[in-house]
Design a protein around this nucleic acid. Structure first.
Lengths: 134, 134
DNA sequence: TTACAAATTTAAATTGATTACAAAGTTAGA
DNA sequence: TCTAACTTTGTAATCAATTTAAATTTGTAA
């Protein structure tokens, strides 16, 4: 059995051909892609692929913890196959989104009495490269 | 001159009738409303109010620092007149968004070489009330 | 005042990401 | 092999947000 298939089974997800392709894309492209970006790339390999399938699959992945939803970009939902807790930075100039490896779970408030299930830490500004260029 | 008008001037925003009404709504309703919610309430007081004006004005407020954009809700943009740094919690059950007063700026990474302009810290889960109800 | 230019507001039309839906195709177990 | 459950597909619909251009209001200078 395919490695990515095993990986999906570990999250309780039945590994279809399309799901494996999308999971593999997420794990090999750490660019925090949108659903549309994934669709446009994978349709070249899977001509029958439907955009609805990409949306359905990404939602399924998020529900099962195999991917995380990233709301740092006001225009589109983005997705991350890197599921260990970390922060994100988005450059307002070039649009690039980069990972910031930090344990954001240690920032949780001590006295909060609800149940916390998701933690997201977003930073926005100008990246080093765009800063140099002016 | 109106207090809210002075407040807007402090951010470099010319205080029109509509802008004062929207700023006043934000400052008196700490519910993190959507543009549509603001529109539906204020149109009762200002029958000629246009939804475009609400969108334009909120964008202007964010650009001038008089309000902050909140992206914790995947469906709609939300806005906060409370501009001092703090975190937000959204209950996935009842949808309520509450402020968590904490100095999120002290969480910034030390070694990051870009310029950080915005910081957002979002928590999602189940609030105390919804938790009790099951 | 009056007149004019700039700023603001408005309503309608459009865009574009996402979802709903129903039909077609696929899978797995009896 | 049969069949029911699951998955994929394409189209249509939804709806927040933006675009656009005309109308209105404001500030200022004559």
């Amino acid at each position: 059995m395919d490695t990515t298939g095993q990986y999906l089974l570990g999250f309780g997800i039945r590994p279809s051909f399309q799901r494996i392709a999308i999971m593999r894309y997420l794990n090999h492209n750490r660019t925090h892609p949108t659903a549309d970006e994934i669709f446009e790339v994978l349709r070249k390999q899977i001509p029958t692929l439907s955009k609805t399938t990409v949306y359905n699959t990404l939602k399924l992945f998020v529900e099962h913890g195999a991917a995380t939803y990233i709301g740092i970009d006001e225009k589109n939902a983005r997705f991350d196959g890197h599921t260990a807790p970390h922060a994100h930075f988005r450059c307002k100039s070039c649009g690039e989104i980069i990972d910031l490896e930090m344990d954001i779970e240690k920032f949780l408030p001590k006295n909060f009495r609800g149940k916390i299930e998701d933690v997201q830490f977003y930073l926005k500004g100008t990246c080093e490269n765009c800063n140099k260029r002016g």
